[in-house]
């Protein structure tokens, strides 16, 4: 009897079944967008920051979760990529995940590993800044700057005096090269008769370099440009197509404000805030493009590859407020836009 009692008591204890509270709040299963930028590129106040903003806006609009990494080196970026791709490859849940990377330095890794995502139907990849589609899983996106830069090349005849200083990071990076060519084409096609000189300078002769510049070096360059035409300092307008190096150059130009009327053209983002120095900006609307792309991804309609440009509204020109007199009012910007769209289309066909 006693044994029976003990048994019953024991079994009674074992029969107490504790279950998770079904009403307990569960962790989110919302789609996740992960962005891995190139080394030290987030916070650039132009291209990468626009991507970040676009992703965050999309997250707000569609209730997504985001995780955005800004590695400090190529090695760290590759380690992030490997970790994220492994997790996406192995994930057994149904959470949708999109990996976005605008880091051109990851090209060979992305091309070698994108196929690993094929095992997970909920995982996807958007690789930017390349005109060459991926063979494995994932989409590619390229923004051509040729048309917008063409417009800028024409417009600068109406804002600059004496000298235009075209500063390019290096002669090899595709986006830089194309932008420089577009600007030069527009500069040379301009119908405005003037004696505006053009000086092209490369910050580096090595591929994928020239994107960082110390303030000291920037000051030296500003000094050299101001005396490029003559021994006496001469005002100039700079177009800095050189990534993060741009900020050092712009800071130095601002430093000359009391002694010269040097100007710069804003690149990627709208930099017209300081309109004494920046008559217009040549911009990429990559924030809007990112919002659109994420919407397409959510709807399962993200294209395998796209090249977007002036005609698509992905690039453009923003004119600053007329704090400093210029002659931009003499240009029919709509007509110029149409010409530039045509030039960009011709180039894409080529």
């Amino acid at each position: 009897m006693l044994l029976m009692l003990v048994t019953m008591l024991t079994s009674c204890t074992k029969d107490r079944i504790i279950l998770p509270n079904p009403d307990e709040e569960q962790a989110s299963g919302a789609p996740l967008v992960i962005v891995i930028y190139g080394p030290n590129s987030l916070g650039d106040r132009s291209y990468c920051d626009l991507i970040y903003t676009g992703v965050e806006r999309a997250a707000q609009r569609y209730g997504l979760r985001t995780l955005q990494f800004s590695p400090e080196s190529d090695e760290e970026g590759l380690a992030y990529l490997e970790t994220i791709i492994s997790e996406m490859e192995m994930a057994s849940d149904t959470v949708r995940r999109l990996l976005i990377t605008p880091g051109v330095g990851f090209d060979s890794y992305i091309r070698a590993n994108s196929h690993r995502l094929e095992s997970n139907p909920c995982a996807d990849l958007l690789y930017m800044e390349t005109a060459t589609p991926l063979e494995g899983k994932g989409s590619t996106l390229y923004l051509t700057y040729y048309g917008a830069m063409y417009m800028g090349g024409c417009m600068i005849h109406y804002t600059a005096e004496n000298l235009v200083s075209l500063v390019l990071a290096n002669p090899y990076t595709l986006t830089v090269r194309e932008a420089g060519e577009g600007f030069l084409a527009g500069f040379n096609d301009s119908q405005k008769p003037d004696s505006l000189a053009l000086h092209v300078r490369y910050l580096s002769q090595e591929p994928a370099t020239g994107f960082t510049l110390s303030d000291t070096a920037a000051m030296r360059i500003i000094g050299e440009e101001s005396t490029w035409l003559s021994a006496e300092p001469t005002d100039f307008t700079m177009l800095p197509i050189c990534g993060g190096s741009m900020h050092s150059l712009i800071r130095s130009i601002r430093g000359t404000q009391l002694f010269a009327n040097n100007q710069y053209i804003g690149i990627d983002g709208n930099m017209n805030a300081d309109t004494y120095f920046c008559p217009f900006s040549i911009v990429k609307h990559i924030d809007r493009v990112m919002e659109d792309y994420i919407a397409m991804w959510l709807n399962g309609r993200m294209p395998k590859h796209q090249t977007l440009g002036l005609a698509d509204g992905a690039t453009g020109v923003i004119v600053g407020n007329p704090y400093t007199p210029n002659n931009l009012h003499l240009i029919d910007l709509d007509s110029l836009w149409q010409v530039a769209v045509g030039k960009e289309a011709e180039r894409c066909v080529e």
Binding site: L5, M8, C12, T13, I18, L19, P20
Partner: peptide, 23 residues
């Protein structure tokens, strides 16, 4: 004893109810 058993069984029956707890 029978009464005790009934009580135990009744009690046990009550404790067999599932308990839901936050994780």
């Amino acid at each position: 004893l029978l009464f005790l058993l009934v009580i135990l069984l009744s009690g046990c029956h009550k404790k067999k109810e599932y308990i839901y707890q936050d994780t």
